[in-house]
Design a protein around this nucleic acid. Structure first.
Lengths: 150, 150
DNA sequence: CTTAAAGGTTGTAGCCGCTACAAGGTCAAG
DNA sequence: CTTGACCTTGTAGCGGCTACAACCTTTAAG
């Protein structure tokens, strides 16, 4: 078993550094994905103050990582996540139009995908409903729809 | 320029063999994708009767390829397409229940994706509507929603 | 006949966002 | 000192293509 590392000079009892596994547990992002994000430049390279060259994280890293995870959950690409992080880290006095723009563009893409998927579903359903499951393969309307010349 | 190959003994004037490019033009599938399908075993290896070892296709190959393209357009995976092709090629007297089953399973997956995507869209839209594009980044509700602890 | 253009051929790498190893290094507890 | 949990890097795979590079073949034209 492993314990909390760096117990400190026992002042306030909280561990200030996290291993990648602890960070993973806190954020719901696996260690392998965290390392992947680092390679991709979505999160900055972790410090390695441990002699054994383990990655070390602080609570702020957990917040940044949660930001990434939530943005990914909303379907933003890693490129978009990088842009959002850059904006979040830039002059807080600037207007948030850039954020809005990224979000709107993404929403438009989601809508486009929805339109596509709904059309696909309609067509698929049409073919399935026409298909009598007890018919012979030779008469299967689904197969013949797939075989049919346009 | 290239011409129709194998003009034959000028009996019925139609070219019976197609190059991969001609097949591509007829089916709307690029030559590279056709070769990919062959590698993946979705379509059988083409014959190579030409001395130069070019692939040669017949009209039946165009039909099979169109079948694949239509199934792909309906969102079936290549695995599912292979299964559908196997069924289409099997005893035509058997009932088409297998086809129906594959199609139903696929429809269920499409529906699941739709549910997911609709939920994502709702959430994204909620965040966007709450976001005042003229607010400062520091007050951007979208960014704070991404940063917020769960 | 030569030659140039428009095809064809294989093999390999890249896209996206992970995920899953293998082979080894390090740490803390017993 | 051993055990075993955890970490490290590097590499390969997923799906379904797409895009080369480097070379070969066919055909029409000169």
């Amino acid at each position: 078993m492993r314990h909390k590392r760096t117990p400190g000079i026992e002042t306030t009892e909280v561990a200030v550094t996290l291993t990648i596994g602890e960070l993973a547990a806190r954020t719901g992002v696996t260690p392998e994905t965290i390392r992947y994000y680092e390679r991709e430049g979505v999160i900055p390279p972790a410090s390695r103050t441990g002699a054994g060259s383990y990655r070390q994280y602080a609570s702020a890293d957990a917040e940044r990582l949660r930001f990434v995870r939530r943005a990914r959950d909303l379907g933003f690409s890693l490129d978009e996540v990088r842009e959002l992080l850059d904006l979040a880290a830039s002059d807080p006095g600037r207007p948030c139009g850039g954020v809005n723009q990224i979000a709107h563009a993404h929403l438009a893409q989601v809508d486009a995908k929805l339109v596509q998927l709904r059309a696909l579903r309609r067509e698929l359903n049409r073919l399935i409903e026409a298909c009598d499951r007890d018919a012979a393969l030779a008469d299967c309307s689904l197969l013949s729809a797939l075989s049919a010349a346009d």
